[in-house]
């Protein structure tokens, strides 16, 4: 248990030391690259803003992610159960996923002018639902027919088969995809925050650091984003352990 916490923390410390060394050896000024020792001052200067903007980024990411889970699971179920829907939807989804979301941001911003929260949530959702839809559909469509037969031969209904077998069996794939989606959703939220000038979220704090040539602030925002990303990621890990912990084999 101690090892589980100590090892990652030690790794982070080593990383920060190497970063500090890199800046120190090259004698970079902080407008080329800020060093970790510049960051506490940058955060302290605007700590109220960090809290406020961090919260805005966090809740919009989480809402976007929740919508992505809902829509992704629904799409995955449709594609997993009906082959014709899979054949119909796959190319569409792949094409949609291939479009860089940075190009979608201005379109969405123009489409719903002024609805900043809504737009941000939309982008977070759009960028993150794809892995969930794909994994759920693959999980459901690769269910071995014997699993179905075992329950069907007892007279079980389709919904019983879904709840007792298909759903739990898909959970490991679902959580694998969710870990990817969590970080993607952050990228989506920040894209919107940086590109559209509404002054909300860590993205806009980053942007104001840029316009004011406050380089340590920009780096501090990056670290804050990384921190939020880690927190959300581990929330997913905890949920995974609760709901799909059985998929983890004991180390032998």
């Amino acid at each position: 248990m101690i090892r589980k916490v100590a090892v990652p923390i030690a790794a982070i410390v080593v990383f920060l030391v190497l970063w500090e060394l890199l800046v120190w050896i090259n004698d970079w000024p902080n407008y080329v690259m800020a060093s970790p020792s510049d960051l506490p001052a940058a955060v302290m200067k605007f700590w109220m803003l960090f809290l406020e903007m961090g919260w805005q980024t966090l809740w919009r990411t989480v809402i976007g992610l929740l919508i992505a889970i809902f829509v992704g699971v629904a799409l995955g179920m449709i594609m997993g159960f009906w082959r014709i829907m899979r054949e119909a939807l796959y190319p569409l989804l792949v094409g949609f996923n291939a479009i860089p979301k940075a190009t979608v941001v201005p379109i969405v911003a123009l489409l719903f002018v002024g609805a900043h929260d809504f737009n941000t949530v939309m982008i977070a959702f759009m960028i993150s639902f794809f892995p969930i839809a794909v994994s759920v559909s693959i999980g459901l469509s690769t269910l071995e027919p014997e699993y179905r037969d075992i329950l069907r031969s007892l007279g079980a209904s389709q919904s019983t088969i879904f709840w007792k077998i298909a759903l739990p069996k898909t959970l490991p794939e679902f959580f694998g995809a969710l870990k990817v989606s969590v970080t993607l959703a952050f990228i989506g939220t920040n894209l919107m925050e940086i590109v559209s000038p509404h002054g909300r979220g860590l993205g806009s704090l980053f942007d104001s650091g840029k316009t004011n040539s406050d380089y340590p602030l920009m780096f501090a925002v990056l670290i804050a984003l990384a921190f939020l990303g880690i927190v959300l990621y581990y929330v997913v890990v905890v949920l995974e352990n609760i709901f799909a912990g059985w998929a983890e084999r004991e180390p032998s």
Partner: peptide
């Protein structure tokens, strides 16, 4: 029924 694949539910 029982098959070659025991299809036990891992969870």
């Amino acid at each position: 029924m029982a098959f070659q694949n025991p299809v036990l539910l891992e969870w």
